[in-house]
Amino acid sequence: LVRYRTISKIPQITLNFVDLKGDPFLASPTSDREIIAPKIKERTHNVTEKVTQVLSLGADVLPEYKLQAPRIHRWTILHYSPFKAVWDWLILLLVIYTAVFTPYSAAFLLKETEEGPPATECGYACQPLAVVDLIVDIMFIVDILINFRTTYVNANEEVVSHPGRIAVHYFKGWFLIDMVAAIPFDLLIFGSGSEELIGLLKTARLLRLVRVARKLDRYSEYGAAVLFLLMCTFALIAHWLACIWYAIGNMEQPHMDSRIGWLHNLGDQIGKPYNSSGLGGPSIKDKYVTALYFTFSSLTSVGFGNVSPNTNSEKIFSICVMLIGSLMYASIFGNVSAIIQRLYSGTARYHTQMLRVREFIRFHQIPNPLRQRLEEYFQHAWSYTNGIDMNAVLKGFPECLQADICLHLNRSLLQHCKPFRGATKGCLRALAMKFKTTHAPPGDTLVHAGDLLTALYFISRGSIEILRGDVVVAILGKNDIFGEPLNLYARPGKSNGDVRALTYCDLHKIHR
């Protein structure tokens, strides 16, 4: 019993810090008490220290592992850092350059016999395009090294910054494609005289377009951006097909006994025919423009016929181009109408809503002055909100995010209106959640004399007048207030005048 009563005193000691020596009952000389009392004092002292730490809000209350900052290894790049964003855009520009100039170089340097010394005699450094290609190869190699040090988000939505895990993730992902696209074939085969082989191998750079397509997928929600990307894709495919079309004609031209190829026909049409040795002929500019003209006309199913396939190889390629053109029509131009419709969806919704308003007016036989006010209010409210119901949009977000959005939407009023000066951010967040926005066209009466005042109004834009009878008592403008002081009276009061809008007004109100 003594032991039980001794232990039962522990909660009292913990909360009230009572010393055991003052209790005459606990001072009985028993061996059990002498053993338990020192333990009680020690526990009391420890609990006292913990309570003191909690009340003082000291940093040592938290466990040590929670006080440590997340460790980022040296030379690790955050995937959302500004440097990584700028670097990704730079790589994107280099990939676009590669997609345009690599097929052009591979096709127009394929057994090209233009006048001038061969590239091997001039030297590697004197070729501007080769120098640019070398810079692109170096940048792609540097990009691989950067990807080995860039964080990523795993399946659990955690940012991984450990170098080993980053390397394994990159090896399992895009490393092989990036490595093949970054191989400097110019340096590996330079001086061997195989410019045709170098041009063909350099087309491996186009593998990076797969990554670019995935990154550009984030802009699919913007109709104008999608339309622009589709047109660029169409032009890029036409450019690639033009390079292939020229390569076919250029390879067949020296081996044909009869002059029936499209390059021969082009030379005869523009007065620059090929001679018996295969030299001469149109310039590279004429060849490229004509090839691009043929691919565009074939892809769009126009086909004027002034550039036509004559050999079997050219006919087979033309059939493939027609098939590609039909697929592009289905996948690209078939979506253009939907994209344009999405661009004008706001206008369509406006006309639909206006039609419903006019049908309501016609069905209920609203008189002319009231009908005009109804239409003007709808037009003004639509121009202010673009038909978007803010309350319906915010309803799907958590309250903390709703408060931040409301604070942002009402920031101008909260910053410049005098009653809100000096208020804490928590108070402003709470008030912003209570605001209701209303609009009024010129001549609209917001409050009639004798109406119950259940709200306090803040003028965000425009001006109003307060009338008693036919006498203008006051004219209020931006950041002015009218209405009933909230919670100042037990019952809502009545208006002693009319409140009429002089201009288009936007008002925020808080109800009782």
Rank of each mutant, 00 (worst) to 15 (best):
Q253N: 14
H439W: 01
G116A: 13
F171I: 14
R71V: 14
R342W: 09
W87T: 01
A242L: 01
Q415F: 14
D133T: 07
C122L: 01
K172E: 04
N310G: 01
S301E: 01
P273K: 04
G334I: 03
P367K: 13
A224V: 14
A99C: 01
W87L: 01
S326V: 07
A182G: 13
R208S: 13
I361S: 06
Y274L: 03
L431G: 02
T233W: 09
T150Y: 01
T120N: 15
A330Q: 07
Q68L: 12
A430P: 01
R358S: 10
R165M: 11
P163W: 12
I166N: 01
L207E: 01
Q379H: 15
D217S: 05
I183N: 01
E157H: 04
F333N: 04
D286K: 01
A238Y: 01
D444E: 09
P70S: 08
R211L: 01
L90T: 07
P254V: 14
T352L: 11
W174H: 03
L327G: 03
V336E: 03
W174S: 05
N154D: 12
I284G: 01
D143H: 01
N154I: 10
Y222G: 05
E114P: 15
D217V: 09
T438E: 08
E157C: 14
R342E: 08
Q269I: 01
A440D: 01
L92W: 07
T424W: 01
G281E: 01
Q127T: 03
V142Y: 01
C406F: 05
A224K: 01
A225F: 05
V357Q: 03
I77C: 05
A204Y: 11
H73I: 05
A225K: 01
S326F: 04
H239G: 01
K425G: 11
L216A: 09
P103C: 01
E115G: 14
V302N: 06
V447D: 02
A213Y: 08
C232E: 01
L241Y: 01
F171W: 04
P117G: 08
F175D: 01
C232Y: 01
G173Q: 08
I405C: 05
L428S: 04
K215S: 08
V86T: 03
F175A: 06
F294D: 01
R205G: 01
P103E: 01
C122Y: 01
L176N: 01
H364L: 04
D88M: 01
P398K: 01
Y219M: 10
T352Q: 11
R71F: 14
I366T: 01
L90C: 07
I339Q: 04
C406S: 08
P442E: 05
R356G: 08
N335S: 03
L110S: 15
V168L: 14
F296D: 01
A432M: 10
M390A: 05
S192R: 14
R165P: 05
N250E: 15
E252L: 01
E158R: 11
I248Q: 01
G346T: 13
I237A: 04
P103V: 01
Q127C: 03
I96C: 07
V357W: 01
S297Q: 01
I339G: 03
K111A: 08
F101T: 03
T347S: 10
A130F: 01
A423V: 08
I244N: 01
I198N: 09
R71C: 09
E359F: 02
Y222D: 08
E158I: 09
V95F: 01
P128G: 05
T295M: 15
F435D: 03
R373D: 03
G278K: 05
